[in-house]
Amino acid sequence: MAVFKRFQLKVWGIAAIMALSLMVQACAPQLSPQSSCNFVMSNEAQRVSWGAEAPVILYVDSSVPSEFFGAIQAGVNTWNQSLGREVLKIGGWSTAYPTERQDGVNVIYFKRDWPEASKDKQAVTTIHWAGDRIFEADISVNGNPSHYVYFWGPEPIPRRVDFESLLLHELGHVLGLDHSEVEVAGTVMAKKLMDTTTRRQPVAADVDNLRCEY
């Protein structure tokens, strides 16, 4: 009897959710498609962003070398200053979320055990969204020293990748920007970053795109 009651509860629970979802979908008006402004687009052709939830608070995992904390903060400051408002914020160091997973917390990782199969990738940023709102973003940097070595300072170092340029790019993804498919000279959202190249300031197109949402 108890098993039957549990089964009934389960069926009613699922039925209620399905009915509500259908009602909500039926009530929702068709949205006009938005221009992308180089943002990730939802299935309803809406730009995907944090909207009113910004500023986005990011934590820096303890795996990130302390010498690069300044580069991360510089990337955050650059986007904030470019937009004239705080859209990103560093929450500090963290040891509480050592594994990258969907957990509702935005974290920057430095993975020294980056797999050989992905050795040509410097970083991966994952964003999670529902509707047209991002609710989580995580950045993982390839910290395997046999793949890439980084620098942060005024002068490029041969055979090293600029950590600030890399983070500025990834932080653009955190805000919802996609890779730049159109060849805009100097865009920080280009999908390749060669050794010693520095792209520490967004070009006007990058900022104009972000202004579509922030």
Binding site: K10, G13, I14, I17, M18, S21, V40, S42, N43, Q102, D120, K121, Q122, A123, V124, T125, T126, I127, H128, W129, A130, G131, N142, L166, H169, E170, H173, D178, H179, K191, K192, L193, M194, D195
Partner: peptide, 20 residues
């Protein structure tokens, strides 16, 4: 059941990769 029912329909993710 409630969580799994809606998660696939409502939540999305995307990975961006940069490199050489």
């Amino acid at each position: 059941a409630a969580l799994s029912l809606n998660r696939d329909e409502l939540e999305f993710d995307k990975k961006f990769q940069i490199g050489t």
